[in-house]
Amino acid sequence: MADIEVTEDKAAPRNDTDAPLLEIRGVTKAFGSVISLADISTTVRAGQVTCVLGDNGAGKSTFIKLLSGVYRPDQGELLMDGEPVRFGTPREALDAGIATVFQDLAVVPLMSIWRNFFLGSEPTKGRGPLRRFDAEKAKQITRSEMADMGIDIRDVDQPVGTLSGGERQSVAIARAVHFGARLLILDEPTSALGVKQAGVVLKYIVQARDKGLGVIFITHNPHHAYPVGDRFLLLKRGKSLGDFAKSEISLPELTRLMAGGAELEQLAHELEREGDKSGALGRELLEDTKTLG
């Protein structure tokens, strides 16, 4: 495994005590002649949520992969606690405390919650040929970690496949928190969920934030992002439309920027003028377009 180029010296006092957990500075990534991301900057602080918003093809996936060690930036740099870092592999990012919960969640549906929770990092007891998976410990930790997130599990033995989408997400988040994540990257955790389930996941995001984690919340839904976000990075076709603190932007402005434009708004307003009934239709259309991307 390649070395992480971190000039880490925990004893030394930090030159800047207010250094953000992760700072992304002018990051650019191109694949051949296609520029996927151009000059993107934002920050994530511990105990805060940075939302990354963008439509399909905005470069959200590339952004996640840069942070989680799958790709390396062509230009620009990542700073963790004020120190520049470079991740060669996802494992290195993980070791540095950046945990990514991808859309597939990396859970095995047919396996129980506790087996999934410790998959790949099973605690063991006994030695030599009798070294075995410490199931009791695993079950107990799973139960308490999930409870810590405010999730009451009916039965840790039940297969993950029997959980709802939101609950599955919570297993993945609780797992990342337990294994020492300092920065949690959530890839569209609410996109496939119904209204209620999405709300549940937003609650988990807040829980993780309150535990002092930095959270990067990738979404295309400003209505999900605005209530939980402290900072908003808007991406469009690989470019940054702006990086705002919550105080600098309102939800309507955010939605307007996201919807990408006047033409959509125009259409909504036209429909709205035609009376109450189709006005509602217009609003719905506007919502739908935003939600569906």
Partner: peptide, 8 residues
């Protein structure tokens, strides 16, 4: 089917 049943 039983094991994979989702409670969405």
């Amino acid at each position: 089917r039983y094991a994979e049943q989702s409670r969405r």
